[in-house]
Amino acid sequence: MPESKRDSWELGSLSDLLALAARMEQEAIHGYVALAKRMQEMTRPDLAAVFESLVAEEKSHLRKVDQWRSTLSLPVARDVVQAPEELFDDEGAGIVAPELLSAYRAFSMAVRK
């Protein structure tokens, strides 16, 4: 596995950690929705379906984060200041020709994220 060059984030509380987790899940949802829409527009319904399934998976992750926050009676924390502007990286899938994408590439990208 490649070594990450990203600096670690300083989190002051469990609320901050869950806020970061929720932000990461929400950005992934937005990213996969955009990719699914692009694949539909490019007449690649097979890949649109893959990205739509990833949207559903990320939504279940977000619900779990919200459930943890609720179960622990934690307040909704402010956004984590040290996090980078954008957490989701589509690894170029949003700009490459659809014929260069495959379900395997989409799922492998999701695994890395």
Score class of each variant (00 low, 15 high):
residue 102 S to E: 09
residue 34 A to W: 05
residue 42 M to T: 08
residue 26 Q to F: 00
residue 51 F to R: 00
residue 87 L to N: 09
residue 47 L to Q: 00
residue 72 L to I: 11
residue 84 P to Q: 13
residue 101 L to M: 05
residue 48 A to H: 01
residue 21 A to P: 02
residue 69 R to A: 08
residue 13 S to P: 05
residue 99 E to W: 03
residue 25 E to N: 08
residue 98 P to S: 08
residue 41 E to R: 14
residue 37 K to W: 10
residue 107 F to R: 13
residue 98 P to I: 05
residue 12 G to R: 08
residue 56 A to C: 10
residue 68 W to L: 15
residue 33 V to H: 04
residue 96 V to L: 14
residue 24 M to A: 13
residue 29 I to H: 02
residue 6 R to E: 12
residue 17 L to I: 11
residue 87 L to C: 11
residue 109 M to F: 07
residue 90 D to K: 05
residue 62 L to R: 01
residue 79 D to G: 11
residue 6 R to S: 12
residue 85 E to M: 14
residue 99 E to T: 05
residue 101 L to H: 00
residue 84 P to I: 06
residue 3 E to M: 14
residue 110 A to L: 09
residue 47 L to Y: 03
residue 30 H to I: 01
residue 109 M to L: 13
residue 94 G to I: 00
residue 11 L to I: 10
residue 72 L to P: 07
residue 75 P to T: 04
residue 29 I to R: 00
residue 73 S to H: 15
residue 74 L to G: 05
residue 96 V to R: 13
residue 43 T to S: 15
residue 53 S to I: 00
residue 21 A to D: 10
residue 67 Q to E: 12
residue 2 P to G: 08
residue 87 L to Q: 13
residue 51 F to P: 02
residue 91 E to P: 03
residue 20 L to C: 04
residue 80 V to Y: 03
residue 101 L to D: 00
residue 66 D to N: 07
residue 89 D to G: 01
residue 16 D to Q: 04
residue 51 F to T: 00
residue 87 L to A: 13
residue 61 H to S: 07
residue 65 V to G: 12
residue 47 L to H: 00
residue 49 A to C: 09
residue 2 P to A: 11
residue 42 M to I: 03
residue 84 P to N: 11
residue 76 V to I: 08
residue 62 L to N: 02
residue 73 S to K: 10
residue 13 S to V: 08
residue 55 V to C: 04
residue 77 A to I: 01
residue 108 S to P: 03
residue 69 R to E: 11
residue 5 K to L: 14
residue 96 V to F: 11
residue 65 V to K: 12
residue 59 K to E: 13
residue 107 F to H: 14
residue 33 V to A: 04
residue 39 M to V: 07
residue 2 P to I: 06
residue 93 A to W: 06
residue 73 S to F: 13
residue 112 R to N: 07
residue 70 S to I: 07
residue 25 E to R: 01
residue 71 T to R: 14
residue 41 E to G: 11
residue 105 R to F: 11
residue 13 S to G: 09
residue 99 E to R: 05
